[in-house]
Design a protein around this nucleic acid. Structure first.
Lengths: 195, 195
DNA sequence: CTCCGGTTAGTCAGTTATGACTATTTGACG
DNA sequence: CGTCAAATAGTCATAACTGACTAACCGGAG
């Protein structure tokens, strides 16, 4: 994600297509309703707007109402509309690899005593569950139903996977040598957390 | 992910714990066996090594074999071992939000003719399927079984979700309810702003 | 022995992202 | 109607990342 994420350009073009806006508004919207998609910071948003303007995809109009420091309002140009259509199709037709930096720890899971590992993963599980609950509680961000739906689907899958890992941890030892020992698990694999 | 990703530090400490290595080797390993977790570039790897050394977590020993430009071999210090144990626990006990920049396009899905949208998503689906197949084919990277397992689990869930979206596209139009005039809901900046 | 392509090893200049800051306006309250 | 908190709008110095580069070494073909 070095080159200015084309998804961000797509997003801004799409929003400006609906109505002209200024930088602050754009960032607000992204931050409030699309936080699960992306993490665009404010200065980055302004930078992107400059680039889009430089590419001729959007136009800046400086509004000097009252005596304010002058807001810059952006609107889509015809070239921008064309770019939007192209980027949208590119986006829909491709899938970006999702990375899970979290997993790095899992690679060293067998260095932690089994008990402790179980407790730690329980904490992780609770976090995912909380995020899922939060997603469920959100009212219904304007154009972002699919986005939310995806998030919930993903979090649900994460829970299922984590539970499998925890299950495995409880019976067979981690992944390394098929170490025998462990008494038959006294606890039920109920999918609920806590031990 | 502005501050040097702690997961990367954890990873390097973990690898150096097993055996001393130099920068190039470390990057090679990550790039080959953990590409699904992270995307660390070579210069970034060297930067990280410098920071770990500055923190006293690893030691650099310059090896001047033959007449080569001298390789820097790193090894873990006791302080590094402590840091590793701490970071590992932190990592296991927390879950980072995963973002899906791809989803941005989905938010504008209803701007594309239904037929075309279906075709585009079919392409996306094929890509996911291909990645899944590739993951299945990989032999079994050294300490990365869980990582691979997670990846496959995730990709499978992605396929299922995408299929649901496509199904929905086929029957009901899009997802939004009978859409009236959805404008990005700018909460505070009400009708006073802009025309 | 020497030229060549591939691997090993690392550096650095230029770009990109962001934490921290400045400054104006509005609304609420006494 | 004065003042303070919150919202609005944006800038900038600095940190982080990476594309593109340099350079030694190794093994085989000629």
């Amino acid at each position: 994600m070095k080159r200015p994420d084309p998804a961000h350009a797509l997003l801004f073009l799409g929003l400006l297509r609906r109505q002209r806006m200024h930088g602050y508004q754009l960032h607000e919207f992204v931050d409030r309703d699309l936080a699960s998609c992306t993490d665009l910071k404010r200065p980055t948003a302004y930078l992107l707007l400059e680039r889009l303007a430089a590419a001729g995809w959007i136009e800046r109009r400086t509004e000097r109402r009252s005596r304010r420091p002058a807001r810059r309002v952006y609107r889509l140009t015809p070239a921008g509309e064309a770019a939007f259509q192209r980027l949208l199709r590119e986006n829909l037709a491709s899938h970006a690899i999702t990375r899970f930096p979290d997993d790095i720890g899992l690679a060293f899971l067998d260095l932690v005593p089994r008990r402790e590992a179980a407790a730690l993963l329980a904490v992780r599980r609770a976090q995912i569950a909380a995020r899922l609950a939060a997603a469920r509680a959100v009212p219904h961000p304007d154009g972002a139903q699919l986005v939310l739906d995806h998030l919930m689907h993903h979090l649900t899958a994460e829970l299922a996977w984590l539970d499998r890992v925890r299950q495995r941890l409880r019976t067979r030892r981690g992944s390394p040598a098929p170490r025998t020992s462990s008494r038959p698990s006294t606890r039920r694999a109920d999918g609920k957390e806590l031990s």
